[in-house]
Design a protein around this nucleic acid. Structure first.
Length: 416
RNA sequence: GGGUCGGUGGGUGAGUGGUUAAAACCACCAGACUGUAAAUCUGGCGCCUUUACGGCUACGUAGGUUCGAAUCCUACCCGGCCCA
């Protein structure tokens, strides 16, 4: 598909454009294939929901014929981005950063392959670790005013709150700006995209490219996904982050997260996270009342497919229907714990079972759950904390455990 | 390096020798109402057990004073600010 000038308008219509350094300039630049980049810092071994929008935008751009460079921050990760952090982030060990960087590279490669995108993967450690301090100060440092740096929200908030600001943290922005310069030189990269929190960092890169190369580079940031009350989205039921790694957040849980988002978040999520045509997004968004759940299921199916593949998404959908719907279908994608037949023979106290299944963090928590009437075995409430589960509770070798209304867990009897 | 203030539970933040497992708020869990939504109301929210006004652990770390310490003392670690 050839790049075209209307791409910018399409992206705007979908809501991707929160801020742009020069909208007319970028609109014109997008008329021809252009190289852009987006960076991910290795603060964890997996990307999370916050990365979805920039990834989706990268996919749109790539499909329109632009070249993507996905950057893993193996170098900047050694410093740590202070943006939106109330206090100084303790430095991660080199080993930790390396491990996370590797994990993220693998994950990104998989995402890219799964969605058949043609992108380049780079790691800024490859050039940042070789920087020479004096040289860096003379060539890059002199283009930045400390007054201006301190005036930006990130740093100003820190100073105002009296939380202090480490020298290392001030340097983060310069390193990210240097990344942009480096990619401009090495790959002709002219656009950096990111979440809205990255605005100042991205502009610093635009500034540096202009100062040193006398060329115009562009910056574009996307909005953050928020709830109706303006809170950042992306926390799972347990309060944990919504990871894109299936080992950290299973496709089923990932799917359920989207089914459970609040009504007000659906239109934005459909437009930003799925590739559905806008006409369909609008149609789904117009569903009201209970019908809105169908829009959420569609959203969940689409996003899960992008992240975990069509097959995993289909399995998650089927399991969701099986557990919440009028029955039928397989709950195979739902979380599962296997019990040895020997354990089961003696009977397993319900409190232990809830804890083993991860539906309760401790036996105390499991006891509270039962006492408060939130524990179910095979959809029948258990109100005796001393209850014991045995083989008779298993049907076809399986038992369905539930906490509250919507957290399910399957227990399978092994060797029975 | 000197001075000074401070480090409390997932978060913010009270508490300055004795019903303090630690106020309040947020987050979170469960119940009710619902649409696997939101809002609202109710209960809960360190761990363990034979569930008891029981036991254990906890207020940066390690010691000490005391019948008794998050609260006092000492050393150390970490952070803010001021001076250098």
């Amino acid at each position: 598909m050839p790049a075209d000038a209307s791409l910018f308008d399409t992206l705007t219509a979908r809501g991707f454009v929160h801020l742009v350094s020069n909208s007319d300039g970028l609109r014109a630049a997008l008329a021809r294939p252009l190289t852009f980049y987006v960076g991910f810092d290795p603060t964890a071994p997996s990307l999370h929901s916050g990365h979805l929008i920039p990834l989706a935008l990268a996919a749109h751009l790539t499909r329109a014929g632009h070249r993507a460079v996905l950057l893993a921050g193996g170098g900047t990760g050694l410093i740590g981005d202070p943006t939106d952090r109330a206090e100084t982030r303790s430095l991660q060990s080199r080993a930790q950063v390396q491990a996370n960087t590797q994990a993220i590279r693998r994950q990104v490669s998989r995402l890219v392959a799964q969605n058949e995108l043609d992108v380049a993967l780079v790691d800024n450690a490859d050039w940042l670790t070789e920087l020479r301090y004096l040289e860096f100060l003379r060539s890059v440092g002199r283009h930045f005013s400390v007054n201006e740096l301190l005036a930006t929200e990130t740093y100003r908030a820190r100073l105002a709150s009296g939380q202090g600001l480490n020298f290392v943290e001030i340097n983060y922005r310069l390193l990210q700006a240097y990344d942009f310069l480096h990619l401009y030189r090495e790959r002709g990269c002219r656009l950096q995209i990111g979440g809205s929190d990255q605005w100042a960092n991205i502009l610093a890169g635009v500034h540096l490219v202009r100062r040193i190369e006398g060329a115009e580079a562009f910056g574009l940031v996307t909005p953050l996904l928020t709830t109706a009350t303006g809170e950042k989205m992306g926390k799972t039921a347990g309060g944990a982050a919504l990871w894109l790694d299936a080992a950290l957040t299973s496709p089923y849980d990932f799917f359920q997260y989207w089914v459970n988002v609040e009504d007000g978040a659906v239109p934005q999520a459909l437009a930003l996270l799925t590739t559905l045509p806008m006409a369909e997004v609008r149609a789904l968004s117009s569903r009201r009342g209970a019908d809105r759940r169908q829009a959420k299921q569609r959203l969940a199916a689409e996003v899960t497919a992008l992240v975990h593949g069509a097959e995993a998404a289909a399995a998650a959908l089927e399991s969701s229907h099986a557990l919440f719907g009028a029955g039928g279908g397989s709950a195979a994608a739902a979380p599962l714990t296997t019990l040895a037949a020997s354990e089961l023979a003696a009977g397993v106290p319900i409190l232990d079972l809830l804890q083993t299944a991860g539906l309760a963090a401790s036996r105390s928590a499991a006891r509270r759950l039962v006492v408060q009437g939130g524990a179910y075995v095979n959809n029948r409430r258990v109100d005796d904390p001393g209850a014991v589960v045995d083989a008779r509770d298993f049907h076809d070798g399986e038992l369905l455990l539930r906490s509250g209304k919507k957290r399910f867990h399957r227990v399978r009897a092994d060797g029975a």
